[in-house]
Design a protein around this nucleic acid. Sequence first.
DNA 1: TCAAAAGTGTTGCCGGTACACCCATGG
DNA 2: CCATGGGTGTACCGGCAACACTTTTGA
Lengths: 223, 223
Amino acid sequence: MAAFRLTVDLVVLTIRAGALNVLLVQRGIPPYQGEWALPGGFVLDDEDLDAAAVRELREETGVTAVGAGHLEQLRTYGAPGRDPRGRVVSVAYLALLPDLPAPTAGSDASGAAWHPLPGPCLAFDHREILRDGVERARAKLEYTSLGAAFCPAEFTIAELRAVYEAVWHTTLDPRNFHRKVTTTDGFVAPTGERRTGVGRPAELFRRGEAEVLHPPIMRPART
Amino acid sequence: MAAFRLTVDLVVLTIRAGALNVLLVQRGIPPYQGEWALPGGFVLDDEDLDAAAVRELREETGVTAVGAGHLEQLRTYGAPGRDPRGRVVSVAYLALLPDLPAPTAGSDASGAAWHPLPGPCLAFDHREILRDGVERARAKLEYTSLGAAFCPAEFTIAELRAVYEAVWHTTLDPRNFHRKVTTTDGFVAPTGERRTGVGRPAELFRRGEAEVLHPPIMRPART
DNA sequence: TCAAAAGTGTTGCCGGTACACCCATGG
DNA sequence: CCATGGGTGTACCGGCAACACTTTTGA
């Protein structure tokens, strides 16, 4: 019945240089000043939780285009003592975004940067939150079309395949991947345009409407 | 940065008479006095969230044997205005339990009872929470061995099959179901005993160790 | 010995993997 | 015309649904 303070913390993932990266901020104020942490902050008085997550993402990292990617609630962490400032409960969110220009540090952060996993030591219980977020992202890619959240608005099938290969550290057969993705209803939508480069030009696609697909859409290869 | 109050609310599901049922309490105090609601209450000052869920389940319903079933965090609901008493954020939990003797009403509830879905109108945003909980339960039964959480400590394969049939309102082939469940590693463990009745005695099983099984373990039939 | 429920063997189908092959462009 | 990457056709293989069949009890 006591009073709690509420924060949102964000596990922001993207693909950079063929590997899964997480967005971290360097704390500019105590506690844990100078250490790396997940971006986040206190929920405002009359603010919805989802809105707080979007706001913190923008304020602390300069990322505005959430619509391009994917944002969902991950889990709530409320162990007593997880924050030295007192009883602070954190609602964690998971964000999947296309690779963006270097983030800008916000008000409470002295720096914001992408880190390849597993990343450095983290403040609070953020290591645990990050682990849960990555696990959720890996799992969701198996039975949803969320891999496309890591891609820009228009992308080739090869780019989408690179996402799955990075998240699972595997290689997938390009031919079978192409067939699977283009024949599964609601996964991707063709734009009609093509991107030229070395070799035959690749058709460009947008994200399809479907998000959760009933049969598992793709599974990490066993090798 | 303001002060919040924190509650846990529980979506407690079981199978009764071949159908999915939810445990509801009739509110004994305002707001929404007299209406049905999910069991739950305020988190104590130095209490972990999971501990609060276990405590509320016991206090409001008399259910103590959580170890027999399954309890997991579902989602957190924090829209401003969801509670007329002020800014109250609720961490919802999902519990799957074997069918138990009629629950006893606790301190803040004038009655506690099982309701077949979809159940009556509910206080607060509990209708939404219930919908999310049922959806999660249905989804998890597809790719985990959690169906056994609805069964008592020892059960027959036919009883376990009845769980899946109730949750998905389908019929499953008894022969194929038996094979699938007994040959999948970690799903069930034989006790060596048998339960006699009409027809050939059925072998008794306990829950296996595995919870999340990588390949989807079972899917609702199409008919 | 019959009904009823438990449990096993077998077949055919469907979907996925592996891989040969064709297409379209730049150099 | 060759290298490079995009995209299609097809054969094999494993898992699952369907269902015939055997086992074990009570009445």
